[in-house]
Design a protein around this nucleic acid. Structure first.
Ligand SMILES: NC(=O)c1ccc[n+]([C@@H]2O[C@H](COP(=O)([O-])OP(=O)(O)OC[C@H]3O[C@@H](n4cnc5c(N)ncnc54)[C@H](O)[C@@H]3O)[C@@H](O)[C@H]2O)c1
Ligand SMILES: NC(=O)c1ccc[n+]([C@@H]2O[C@H](COP(=O)([O-])OP(=O)(O)OC[C@H]3O[C@@H](n4cnc5c(N)ncnc54)[C@H](O)[C@@H]3O)[C@@H](O)[C@H]2O)c1
Lengths: 211, 211
DNA sequence: TTTTTAATGTGATTTTTGTAACAGTTGTTA
DNA sequence: TAACAACTGTTACAAAAATCACATTAAAAA
């Protein structure tokens, strides 16, 4: 299958989550317009996404929720080889994310957290033990961790992200406000302030993007 | 001036932040390729963005950092009428965001936080007092709050977001995993799981988006 | 002074993303 | 069984975003 567009992959993640809820409620089929409504997007977008992943629905019956979930899972989680996740820097934000991920039903497996604070190392956070940042490479290799969430203070972002890459992590979400550039890794950056300032701009009356 | 593209506005926010740091270091002019390097983007992109906001640099001298910051601030913060921000739901995530925003030097003013837990109401969080969710409308009107960050449990997302809109808030960042649809407001949704699953997809070897 | 270099500003083009239109099919109803 | 309604799948089109290519010009070097 061809490489999927980023936005499609994002929506697939959301589809799966709401589909799982529908399945738990006992529904077995769903129409594109119903799925669209749950995500507040258009039915065409839904059909297009589903087309791209090569799934096909039944006319006048909709899509099989079970099949759709299985297919999306194969695409995202690669059912064969589980992808493990680590949080690096278990401060306020790291802990908030950890709790959220633990409560969620994502198929990605949160296998370790790391910090450099001696008081935190060895402690268990929501059931996950905190390792020393120095043992990063060792644990990443042992646990087969491929994805990392970076939540250390900004001044350590560059150094620690390099350590993550060198340890073999290939996908990183960077929550520090420092832009990074790491060749050979898929890097996704996020910053509330940027989002907040964007919202500020577009919610000003004269920029009425609000339709 | 014409409405700016979303991505440009996001970059403007980032430009301003790194420019402020440069200014504090005593630099007074900057070239497009230098600014580009700080954000790990291309110089053309920088020049194009700057062109769009109507600023113009000096050939062989670059852009005046001071002027650029002032202009970006006018565009984003609307220097005339200050935009005030509220956090609704001051749990783990809300507090992590609050601390981060307080430490940042954004020009947006965090003026209140809201919760429905009696133990939290009246308490001060990082210097900001927590009000009852019932007084939302009153306080929003009194303080002139226009932007809200939604961090309540998912089951209250719909109800509380409607309250926010009715209270007069026109821009919302929704961190709950529930998609919302609110006409007449600028809504921005964010979810770690979606991001994480996207990173999982694109960091798989066969999807080598990592260049 | 002349040439070269290094920067900005922008029209043209490409890439990515989303939307519209509609042909085709299946079930339903008269 | 004929007409209709409801849904999928796909092609064509449009909009948003990024990149390319290059004209232009100020300063530095020759
Ligand atoms: N993107 C966002 O929306 C957002 C929101 C809040 C915070 N942040 C950023 O996220 C980061 C964490 O914020 P926080 O509020 O959790 O901070 P925090 O200080 O509470 O947590 C940081 C943690 O990192 C640990 N740490 C420090 N140096 C380390 C190292 N070299 N290796 C491993 N661990 C190390 C600290 O011991 C601490 O536990 C900061 O960079 C902050 O600016 C981003
Ligand atoms: N998008 C993300 O990346 C991300 C990450 C973590 C959590 N979350 C989501 O953010 C939300 C908050 O997460 P958390 O870990 O901080 O949860 P939390 O339980 O720690 O905090 C929720 C807060 O909301 C308050 N609250 C409950 N009902 C309310 C109401 N009706 N009005 C006002 N306040 C109310 C609670 O008293 C509590 O203080 C949840 O929806 C969670 O799923 C999102």
């Amino acid at each position: 299958m061809k490489l999927l567009p980023e936005r499609t992959v994002e929506r697939l993640s959301k589809y799966r989550r709401v589909l799982q809820r529908e399945l738990d409620n006992g529904t077995d089929h769903i129409y594109s317009h119903e799925l669209a409504k749950l995500l507040h997007i258009t039915p065409v977008q839904v059909r297009r996404d589903i087309m791209l992943i090569g799934h096909t629905g039944t006319l006048r019956k909709g899509y099989s929720i079970d099949n759709l979930i299985k297919l999306i899972s194969e695409i995202i989680d690669c059912s064969s080889s589980v992808q493990n996740v680590a949080i690096v820097g278990i401060g306020k934000l790291g802990q908030a994310l950890l709790d959220y991920l633990n409560d969620s039903n994502t198929k990605l497996n949160l296998s370790a957290v790391f910090d450099n604070n001696p008081d935190k190392i060895g402690t268990s956070y929501s059931g996950t033990v905190c390792y020393s940042i120095e043992s990063l490479k060792k644990i990443v290799e042992r646990e087969g961790i491929t994805i990392g969430i970076l939540t250390v203070p900004p001044e350590f972002a560059k150094e620690v992200s390099t350590m993550m890459k060198d340890a073999g992590i290939v996908g990183i979400i960077n929550y520090t406000p420092v832009s990074l550039k790491l060749d050979g890794t898929f890097l996704e950056e996020y910053d509330v302030i940027t989002t907040l300032e964007k919202v500020a701009y577009f919610s000003k009356p004269k920029n009425a993007k609000l339709l």
